[in-house]
């Protein structure tokens, strides 16, 4: 793998939310959704962000697009400092970076024809109009495997898999270079999931698209991505290339996730390990290493000191005291 300059580089990205919680006496708590996150996506690469609910993976995808304004950090897309852009420049940038959501139905206007929904971004960005616009809508539908008649129908007339195709077509309409795909196949049945994954992979090859692929499913990430970062309570605990990282996970949390991911093979059930405890709240992460209350290798040091990031060679890195020397 060549060390080309990354298309997207994220450094020290931080986002804290303050929320009021509790009834009848609400208290203000700070949720540390993103607590200093670093990763990069290379040109043509699909890079995965994995972790369980509340780990901050979706917030990361939104914060780098400034759909949520991050508190701190740096986001570079090619030579652009994303966090320094004014509104107009940001809008222009969003042509280059698009997002696909888990539930496309929630992000499509139910009263608007699919053809109109696909045409709008192209009109907004001044990419086409009139006959050329209709032509491009047809070409987009064809590219995602939908018939041209789909343009004259409403979102509710489509199945979940077809709606996700519409969501993908809309993202492609402005010819982005990077697509942030936030759990794009999680709501789909496996046979439909495979159709959509194959579509996304095909677009990667054909258009040279890059992806930031946010998912909780390690199997999907292994198949789709070339690199991955594992998040736990707002921080990246391990990062590296695939499949190496899932074949020999270094961080005890990655090991736990890997062991808990079910495999369609009854002989693999013996590896079902006993996993202690639940994910703590991001508003009150444990002191020291966030994972130590659930970690089988936790020592005294893990209880007090958050482990520093260590580069392990071959593009791999981990934040765990086990790898100190």
């Amino acid at each position: 793998m060549t060390q080309a300059a990354p298309l997207l580089q994220v450094e020290g990205l931080r986002k804290f939310f303050t929320v009021k919680r509790g009834f009848p006496n609400p208290r203000t708590v700070t949720v540390r959704a993103l607590d200093g996150v670093d990763f990069g996506v290379r040109e043509g690469e699909a890079f995965g962000l994995v972790g369980e609910s509340g780990c901050g993976k979706s917030t990361a995808g939104r914060a780098l697009l400034r759909l949520i304004e991050p508190d701190e950090g740096r986001v570079r897309f090619r030579d652009t400092d994303v966090l320094a852009l004014d509104r107009q420049a940001l809008r222009a940038l969003r042509r280059k970076i698009q997002i696909v959501f888990q539930d496309p139905y929630a992000s499509l206007n139910p009263k608007r024809l699919v053809g109109k929904a696909l045409a709008e971004p192209m009109r907004v960005h001044g990419l086409a109009e009139g006959r050329a616009l209709a032509e491009r809508v047809r070409a987009l539908l064809d590219e995602v495997g939908l018939p041209p008649e789909a343009a004259e129908r409403y979102p509710h007339e489509f199945s979940g898999g077809q709606r996700q195709r519409i969501g993908i077509a809309r993202a492609l309409s402005v010819e982005p270079e990077l697509v942030v795909a936030d759990e794009p196949v999680s709501a789909l049945d496996v046979s439909i999931q495979a159709q959509v994954l194959l579509l996304l992979r095909g677009l990667q090859d054909k258009r040279g698209l890059s992806y930031l692929f946010v998912s909780h499913d390690l199997g999907v990430v292994r198949w789709f991505c070339q690199g991955v970062a594992v998040m736990y309570l707002g921080r990246i605990v391990e990062r590296g290339p695939l499949p190496q990282m899932f074949d020999e996970p270094l961080h005890p949390y990655t090991q736990t996730l890997r062991a808990a991911s079910p495999v369609p093979d009854p002989r693999a059930r013996v590896t079902m390990v006993r996993i202690e405890g639940e994910v703590p709240s991001a508003s009150a992460p444990p002191p020291g290493c966030h994972f130590h209350p659930r970690c089988p290798h936790a020592t005294e040091r893990c209880r007090v000191e958050y482990p520093a990031w260590k580069e392990m060679g071959q593009g791999r890195g981990v934040a765990c005291h086990l790898y100190d020397r």
């Binding site: 496996v190 495979a194 292994r222 198949w223 991911s261 495999v263």
Partner: peptide, 12 residues
């Protein structure tokens, strides 16, 4: 059609 976490498969 299941992408597996325990092995690399090119075909899906």
């Amino acid at each position: 059609s299941i992408p597996r976490v325990d092995r690399t498969s090119d075909t899906l």
